[in-house]
Write a protein that binds this DNA or RNA. Structure first.
Lengths: 301, 301
DNA sequence: ACTGATTACGCAGTACGTAATTATA
DNA sequence: TATAATTACGTACTGCGTAATCAGT
């Protein structure tokens, strides 16, 4: 086991920085020559090249390098786990939690949950990382976030463990006095108006598309946002009718009318996810439980 | 990440050697004081004790230590994987393979498979590690073996990946001129004789016990062995009737009679197993395929 | 010319070994 | 008294930084 962990980490950083040794050196707070030397030593020990070179320029990472980088990920995770366990034992009531989530969850679902959490763990720092579901998954993989809360994508990733949180439905949000505020609703009627909803990859957008397509209806979705509030604002301004998560309009609001669309789109499921092999600090485990509790209580009256 | 890998490995060795620092030091080819110092430094860094001490004696590993040891396992696996991948790239046609298996597989199923394997990879060294199924699983976990081939236990272990290999049945092995060589067989008739079969935990022994118990029959199993050959020898000497895997008596043999017992005991399944996160060298992957091929061909005439 | 990788050399810090010290069984 | 862990001290080695060199764009 002469192979040093630091050498492996350097390799990872080089590979993840476009094969630029200088940049990698900066990130590890050492000079280029040091990195160059360590990588040479590693190559010597393995008896194989880590890069395809053109003179002194690195052209391409070998398959070996890529395989090593994967293993380094797992090693670094284990190292972080050790630190996390130690933190738990030192003082399980303080620390930090990084929650990757979407705007909708952060604004409409999480506030009461985090309020309860904060009462139990007043010393834990809570950080939000926002992004689309694809980005959230990446954040988990890269160790930038501890847990993710969102609606799509999470279920299909082998490396993730997920918990069910809550089910929700879409709703129509209309300007006051819009013709759709009256009478029986139908996808046909809705399709005749410009539709304001979430950007692709977000909070159930795919289900909306599909429902209209299945009925052979084409819709005008020239306006989309990641964010229910933005959608509501433009609905108010008369840009069209909004389709948003029902829970993102909890209270009646001046100038807006909400109508349920549960009959037209399938239920969406919000889930909690984290990396399978990651050690969850005790307060994170507790937060996951809180999320499940609050989630299941949403259904009940 | 000041935490050094070597420190963590020392900790693991100490924990796995009854908290004896001196012994751990020997295993790593350093002196006691060095280990003692490194562990102190690790404790300082983590800010927590790794052991409960009574004066200068180590009494007990803390939960923290145990958690660390787990993570170290995963780190060491990753390191070995890196070496394995490198070996593959250097020369994928040579190396070593350590097969953990039982006597029955080693003697009656594996020979033709390994013959085929040897022709493809003449330079690969093949090592057998024999043991009972429980030991085989431990060998996989501890990295002493690359793959295991056996009948029981393998299916329930979360950390293992398994492949189906082949199904087999039990058979009765009798001395010539035994009364059971004639007439219709039944568990009742068999139960009237002393039964020679495998020791507990082996090759379907549990299924034998159960079949008799389900019929309310008690059997005399005062003699048992891990090994079909031993059983056969004693059957020949008139110690009783043998129940063995049918495939461990492929050819007629002077003084012995074989009768099928497929109707009385459920089929047993032989499986191939290896650690989920382990990198399999290409020739190991090939061997697994060979095992599956030969296994599936057993059924066909 | 300039960016970026490799090689050469002196220096500092880390970790080992020897040995003395302390504590338990 | 014997075994085993901790502490003290001198030494060797590993790996950094500075700087010079070399190779592409």
């Amino acid at each position: 086991m002469l192979m040093k962990l630091f050498q492996l980490q350097l390799l990872k950083t080089v590979v993840n920085n476009g094969l630029n040794i200088s940049r990698a050196a900066d990130q590890h707070f050492v000079v280029q020559s040091a990195v160059s030397r360590q990588l040479s030593l590693l190559e010597d020990e393995l008896g194989l090249p880590l890069f395809e070179r053109k003179g002194k320029r690195l052209i391409k990472a070998t398959d070996l390098s890529l395989a090593i980088v994967q293993q380094v990920d797992s090693i670094e995770l284990a190292m972080e786990n050790i630190r996390a366990v130690a933190d738990d034992f030192r003082d399980g009531r303080q620390g930090e939690i990084r929650i990757a989530t979407t705007h909708m969850q952060a604004k409409y679902f999480l506030p009461p949950v985090l309020n309860a959490f904060r009462q139990r763990y007043p010393k834990v720092k809570v950080n939000f990382l926002q992004g689309n579901p694809g980005q959230l998954v990446r954040m988990l993989h890269d160790g930038e976030a501890d847990i993710a809360v969102c609606t799509e994508e999470l279920a299909n990733d082998e490396a993730l463990l997920t918990h069910h949180c809550y089910d929700w439905n879409h709703a129509l949000i209309l300007p006051e006095a819009h013709e759709l505020t009256e009478g029986e609703l139908s996808l046909e009627r809705i399709a005749q108006h410009p539709i304001l909803t979430y950007v692709l990859g977000f909070t159930g957008r795919s289900k909306i598309e599909k429902a209209f397509a299945d009925m052979g209806l084409s819709i005008d979705t020239s306006f989309s946002a990641t964010d229910s509030d933005v959608i509501k604002s433009y609905v108010k301004l008369g840009f069209g009718v909004g389709i948003i998560a029902k829970i993102s309009h909890p209270n009646p609001e001046e100038g807006l009318v909400l109508r349920d669309l549960a009959d037209f789109f399938p239920e969406s499921v919000t889930r909690i996810a984290y990396m399978k092999n990651k050690h969850l600090k005790n307060y994170i485990t507790d937060l996951v439980e809180l999320l499940e509790d609050f989630g299941s209580r949403l259904k009940a009256p």
